[in-house]
Amino acid sequence: MSEEKHHIVPYKTYLVILLVLLVLTFVSIAITNIELGELTVAGALFFATVKTFLVLTYFMHLKYDKPYIRIMVGFVFAIFLVVIIITFLDYYYRA
């Protein structure tokens, strides 16, 4: 196990990602000034998704890990998505 290579991410990458996250945070606040109606939630969720992706990929090192770990994480999100869809089988079709 000790022979496994550990990828070292340069500070610069972390810094760039941090900046991007901060910018996205301000953008997601700024966008609430525009009247988007029903799309407001979608907008907020979109920025949250992009940020989550960045955190998982760089801060949580998924980019440099073995593929099976990425598959497992993907599987988790797939289950999450399915659970949401099923819940809406109730809400969407409720009389």
Partner: peptide
């Protein structure tokens, strides 16, 4: 383990869910 995630609504048939959800 997997299918177990997808069937929780069988505890709620009389709770007022949509018919679609009940069938599912």
């Amino acid at each position: 383990a997997f299918v177990g995630y997808l069937v929780w609504g069988h505890h709620m048939y009389t709770a007022g869910m949509s018919g679609t959800a009940q069938y599912y």
